[in-house]
């Protein structure tokens, strides 16, 4: 092999790298192709997609679910409506979402702890809790929380007594879940805003249980 051949190969590699450095990564390129076809065919509007990304990056998150929980703690009539038909109850806040589908609220008690998973993929009440955390989508959580819920909860820092049963709710495209955590002691007289501020996202999925009245 001559050094000239080697030089040409290096040069070609550099030209190749230079050309390809202009290209987005392959998945980004395919997404761009898909989006441009969907827009061109009138199936989605780019403004709708931009608004969705902005909303889920900035506005829509677990603070919505926290408001619902706080209201349920304060207002027994609302709580009754929430437990009866959660999808309808959250329309009182304007938090409904087609992709959230039907919604069921499940309440933690001294004798029962609830935890939510989607064993199939990653179904989640997006319009109420925002984007799901990475661990919720992970294969490890989806498999293990069904098989060994107490152990997974322990890893999340949730300590359950033997007299507290664990119920795992498996979300589907048609039915998703909101855990209503227990209101902590020491929050008597608090406003809805004060209460909402202590409701964590994980407590509404069920991987957190004991909320703290003081921060």
């Amino acid at each position: 092999m001559t050094s000239g051949t080697s030089f040409d190969r290096d040069k070609l590699a550099k030209i190749h790298d230079h050309l390809h450095s202009h290209l987005p990564p392959e998945p980004a390129l395919r997404v761009k192709a898909l989006e441009s076809l969907l827009v061109e065919r009138g199936l989605v509007a780019s403004e709708t997609l931009d608004a969705w990304v902005d909303a889920y990056s900035e506005d829509i998150g677990p603070k919505r679910g926290a408001q619902v929980v706080a209201r349920a703690w304060l207002d027994v009539d609302f709580k009754a409506r929430l437990m009866d038909d959660a999808a309808k109850a959250i329309t009182e806040f304007g938090f409904e979402g087609k992709a959230t589908g039907d919604l069921k609220a499940v309440e933690n008690t001294d004798s029962q702890h609830n935890v939510v998973v989607c064993t199939l993929c990653s179904c989640y009440p997006f319009s109420l809790l925002g984007l799901s955390p990475a661990w919720y989508k992970a294969s490890a959580y989806r498999a293990r929380v069904v098989r060994e819920p107490r152990k997974v909860l322990e890893e999340f820092g949730v300590e359950l007594g033997e007299d507290t049963a664990v119920r795992v709710w498996d979300s589907t495209a048609e039915l998703r879940y909101l855990v209503v955590p227990q209101r902590p002691a020491g929050t008597e007289g608090w406003t809805q805003e004060q209460l909402a501020a202590i409701v964590t996202r994980n407590s509404m999925i069920g991987t957190d249980r004991v909320l703290k009245a003081g921060s």
């Binding site: 969907l38 989605v44 997609l49 990304v53 889920y56 984007l131």
Partner: peptide, 12 residues
Amino acid sequence: WHAQVLAMADTL
């Protein structure tokens, strides 16, 4: 592109 994939799926 992560956001765009979910945005397209959710919108559809």
